[in-house]
Design a protein around this nucleic acid. Structure first.
Lengths: 159, 159
DNA sequence: GGTTGATGGTTACATTTGTAACTGAAATAA
DNA sequence: TTATTTCAGTTACAAATGTAACCATCAACC
């Protein structure tokens, strides 16, 4: 007869931590721009990589293609994003942020960075360093050590 | 003009880590019992605390009350869970796992613990110890240092 | 007592998300 | 060349989730 103490269970703690933090971040762009999570994921991915296809955004951000499609449509409607057909392969659309999109992106990002530094400040340099190390270990153990390129595929679609 | 490298951004990494892990765990009870995430949350909370109201389960597991209500109904249909009115307050229902429910719970939990130990083994004792420390720090910094009792309230409803 | 407001839980309805079918375009093969 | 298959992206439909209204009960107040 086993009993699992959730508060002491590593996966539970990690998941809760991640949820609470992303919940707080959602508050930032949610309140400020009325953006949804998928919207923000597309915006941030595109902000980082400048130009991508919807497919690439999906694989990099682990979002279902329909979710991406809808978020892209939403951002386009705000005129934060522009599409253009790839002349070399007319199935694909190359997506980029417009000036307005970049402006919003930069604004949100500076808030995000503010949030992160507030957090790391609370932790202290030593803890942050340890955290970095252990995160890397975990990422390796779970085989998600990041390649920082949106072209490489992975087929899971995480929540 | 800022550029946020997502793979190096702490909140992003934490969230992704949590998602990937809980995705893998979902595989366990999903394949084995065809259970959904809300189902498992209710089952595990009830497994830990033996007897709770739906409300208490909701606050402890940060689930919306309708989600809890539906998961409870689903588990009841499997005869894994039994309800009984609280005679002292006939609005509440006291929920407990049946023998069958406990059996499934124990089975899944042993898999979960197996998963956790496989993970910590990969990390090594030193890293695990560091992880524990830093997680605690983070939980404190984010004000979710766990009280391990389902009675205390928090109003956020995380994803 | 009766009335009013809050609370635990369910249900109807709206929104979001995922699944599967589809469109247009490219690649492969005949 | 013209099938056939594969692929990027969208859309129709189904399943899951959240919002708001609801019912039953309790608590507070008259």
């Amino acid at each position: 007869m086993i009993r699992l103490i959730l508060e002491a269970f590593l996966p539970y703690r990690l998941h809760r931590l991640g949820s609470v933090i992303s919940q707080k971040l959602k508050g930032v762009y949610g309140r400020k721009y009325g953006m949804t999570v998928p919207d923000w994921r597309v915006l941030s991915t595109l902000g980082q990589f400048v130009q991508l296809t919807a497919k690439a955004i999906g694989t990099h951000s682990a979002m279902h293609k329909t979710k991406v499609s809808r978020a892209v449509a939403a951002l386009e409607k705000r005129r934060w994003l522009a599409r253009s057909r790839n002349p070399d392969d007319r199935r694909e659309e190359l997506l980029t942020l417009t000036t307005a999109g970049l402006k919003a992106y930069n604004d949100i990002v500076s808030d995000m960075i503010g949030f992160e530094s507030a957090l790391t400040e609370r932790l202290g340099v030593k803890n942050v360093a340890e955290l970095e190390t252990v995160l890397m270990q975990l990422e390796q153990a779970l085989d998600i050590s990041e390649q920082s390129s949106p072209s490489s595929q992975r087929t899971t679609s995480a929540e």
